[in-house]
Each structure stands twice: as C-alpha cells, then as structure tokens.
C-alpha cells in the first residue's frame, strides 16, 4: 500500500538560524514590520510502499533519523497519508 509522506525538517529550538534572522532583519525595509520569529527549514516529500500507516511512519522516521536530518541540530515533523501524493512523479 502506498503512503505519501511529507517531512518538514526544522532546526531544533535554541539552535541559531542565521538565515531566518537575516530574512527577518530585511523585512522592515519592505514594509513588513510585524513579522517575527522567522525560521527556515526544508520540506521533503516522497511515497512509501508499506503494509500499513504505522509501518510507513516507522520507516519514514528511521529515514529521517539516519539520513534526512542530523538530530544534533534538526527535528523532523512527519506527516503520513494514504495514497500517492497528487502529481508526484519520479
């Protein structure tokens, strides 16, 4: 059974985010005065063929831990849904 997985990789709380803070500092120039707490991450999508949702989640979890993130500085939020992602191609 195919599950579509969406992984959001974020810097862990407390880890410096130079890119986020540089973007935030530039915003007032453009008239965006109220924007705070900019954090930059990565979004990764893929499909997994697995027996059930929990198996798919476990595999995605392992993939994140071993490859997609470095747990030293990054957290991942994993979303799993039944069915291949719409429009996904290789």
């Amino acid at each position: 059974m195919i599950f579509s997985v969406h992984v959001e990789v974020r810097l862990r709380p407390g880890i410096a985010d130079p890119q986020g803070s540089t973007i935030e500092k530039a915003l007032p120039t453009l008239g965006f005065d109220g924007v705070k707490g900019v954090r930059v991450g990565k979004s990764i999508r893929f499909d997994i063929d697995a027996a059930d949702e929990s198996a798919a989640r476990a595999e995605a979890d392992d993939l994140c831990r071993r490859f997609l993130t470095n747990p030293v500085i990054e957290d991942a939020v994993i979303h799993v849904e039944a069915g291949a992602a719409a429009g996904a191609t290789s």
Partner: peptide, 14 residues
C-alpha cells in the same frame, strides 16, 4: 546523543 546539544551553528555572514 547526550552530547548533541553542545553543537554550535556558524554564521559566516555575521
């Protein structure tokens, strides 16, 4: 794993 929070992040622009 226990030592992990000690890692620093560099900002070359700063």
């Amino acid at each position: 794993a226990e030592k992990r929070p000690s890692v620093q992040v560099g900002d070359p622009f700063e």
